[in-house]
Amino acid sequence: MLTRMTNLPEDASKQEYRLKLLHTALTNSDLLQSHLATEELETLPCSDSDAMLICSYLQSDSPETRARAAHLCSRLSLNAKELVPSLLSVIQDRLWSTRESAALALAPFVPDDNVQEALLERVLLDKNELVRMAALSALSETLDRQRQVLDALHNALKDSRHIVRTRAARALANFHGLACFYLDSLAETLKDSHWRVRLAAADTLKSLGPAAKRTLPALIRRRYDGDRRVRIAALEAIREIYPGTPRPLHRIFQSLLDRFYDGRQILQNSFKAYDFPREVELQFSNICVQRIDLLTNNRRELVIKSPQETNGWETACAVVKATSLAGLKCNENKEFTKLLAHLVEIWLGNKNLESLS
Rank of each mutant, 00 (worst) to 15 (best):
D30R: 15
R165C: 08
A234G: 06
R66S: 04
L44H: 09
S47M: 14
T6C: 14
A212T: 03
E121I: 02
R4E: 15
A316M: 08
Q290Y: 11
P111H: 00
A316F: 05
Y242C: 09
I238V: 13
D262C: 07
P307T: 03
N79V: 13
R75T: 08
R167W: 10
T65V: 12
I91R: 00
R167H: 14
R239T: 14
K81D: 11
A316I: 06
G263T: 04
L32D: 15
G263V: 03
D61Y: 13
C330D: 15
E335T: 14
A322I: 11
Q148A: 10
I252G: 01
L249Q: 02
A105K: 00
S324N: 12
R99D: 07
T98W: 02
Q290H: 12
A200T: 08
N311K: 12
L295A: 07
E345Y: 06
P248C: 08
G177F: 05
V131L: 02
I287W: 05
D151S: 10
L172I: 11
Q290A: 15
L157G: 02
L130M: 10
N155P: 08
L76H: 00
P243L: 07
A51W: 12
Q146S: 04
Y261S: 10
P210F: 05
V303E: 02
F253T: 04
L26H: 04
A211Q: 05
A318T: 05
A134Q: 04
